[in-house]
Design a binder for these strands. Sequence first.
DNA 1: TTCCAGGACCCTG
DNA 2: CAGGGTCATGGA
Length: 275
Amino acid sequence: MKIRVKNFSLKHTLECGQTFRWHKIDDWYYTVRENRLIKVKQQGNYLITNSSKNILNYLLRLDDDLNKIYKKISKDKIIKQAIKNYKGLRLVREDPFQCLISYICSANTNIPNIKRQVLNLSKKFGKKVDGFYAFPSAKRLAKASLKQLKGCKLGFKAKYVLAVSKFIASKRFNLNRLRNMTYKEAKKELIKLPGVGSKIADCVLLYAFDKMEAFPVDVWIRRVMQKYYFKGKMISNEKIVKFAQKYFDGYAGYAQEYLFYWAKNNKLHWSLDKV
DNA sequence: TTCCAGGACCCTG
DNA sequence: CAGGGTCATGGA
């Protein structure tokens, strides 16, 4: 099926580092969602896919009015440059459990390692679907042993993944309930989970629960914010979050994604900050 | 060899 | 509340 799109870049959307379960083979991107294989590629203003318009609209936020969002967040030359470089980058809508576990795995490591960890989990515990692997359910991961999880190279995060999976599988923690909460309420709940702090909670709220005011602060965002928005001054993560939420006026999450990709691709490092 | 990566947690002062 | 050490893993 062929879907007309405008103001959309599949490449930037899937390769900017917000999502870890799309595999690129030639021009096609593959993932498994709800135990079904989805494949998609972009040709100019069209997406070619075996899926449906509704599903891709949902997963890739094709209905977001990007021009309106650009207008809201284009407040300075840094963010303008990032928007210009990555035009068409959209946030994604991830499965909440997959998103939560993926970002728990993201602690103190890099994107290739995160991808490796979630792929290992999928291969070991997920269902095989047309040659690819679904991300395992909470129920399945809750039955895993710590040794098996460490075998997936999760390192010190294995215990968090196991504990969180057990909380969710046992229904002592209801992930779906977060969808109807405010950003603040939902964040307060997420942070109660072991291995989940402010940054990972913001990632889950942004990529899985539509909380556009979430502003995950990782090392790259810290660098770009500290250098260009706080004159190099050391500042707490919470102050960065609060500043961004006010400054980017309801769309901090979108601004964050562009700034993150920009900082990372420009190899922004501390040595440059100190100039 | 040392440093770093989409951090959280624990302990100190 | 801020600052530092620690935790597994793999690439530069």
